[in-house]
């Protein structure tokens, strides 16, 4: 499997910078929150300001530590399978309501079985149909969970 790798120290520096950025962002946003009603008593922004500072500090620490340590070892960020799973997940969640449960999950599973499980299409399609229908029946009929029919079903059946 082809995987993407980077030097660990570089990844740590990027991770630390992102953490510091998140801390800084929360700090600035919390600073704009209304001040406390009484002096000395914490208001809605007091705790977030302190937390923002801690996150910012920790992010900077991680960056500096990574820089000083300079770990040249490789860090595998992931490969084709992680990318496929993530792309499929984003697709399935984005179109879950619009396409409806059956269509979105059928496509997601078929592609998943082929691309992740190396199955042939003629085997993946019936397997995906069985799993989607089975899950639909278990969750909607047996457990009473409401799952979306989707726009296509709405158009076809209403």
């Amino acid at each position: 499997m082809n995987t993407v790798s980077v030097a660990r120290w570089k990844a740590e520096i990027v991770g630390g910078a992102l953490l510091a950025g998140v801390g800084g962002f929360f700090l600035v946003t919390a600073w704009r929150l209304p001040p406390p009603d009484e002096p000395g008593v914490p208001g809605p922004g007091s705790v977030p300001i302190a937390l923002g500072l801690i996150i910012l500090f920790c992010g900077l620490w991680v960056m500096v530590e990574a820089w000083l340590r300079g770990d040249r070892g490789g860090l595998e960020l992931g490969g084709r399978k992680q990318a496929v799973a993530l792309a499929g997940l984003v697709f399935a969640t984005a179109f879950f309501e619009a396409a409806g449960f059956m269509l979105a999950t059928f496509l997601f599973l078929s592609a998943g079985f082929v691309l992740l499980g190396d199955a042939r299409w003629r085997r993946a399609i019936p397997a995906a149909a069985v799993v989607s229908s089975g899950l639909w029946l278990i969750f909607t009929k047996l457990l009473g969970v409401g799952l979306p029919y989707g726009l296509i079903a709405e158009i076809l059946f209403r």
């Binding site: 399978k81 499929g88 997601f108 599973l109 998943g112 079985f113 992740l116 499980g117």
Partner: peptide, 11 residues
């Protein structure tokens, strides 16, 4: 096979 299990769990 994990390739079958993973999409089902994600679902």
């Amino acid at each position: 096979p994990y390739g079958y299990l993973a999409p089902t769990v994600l679902l």
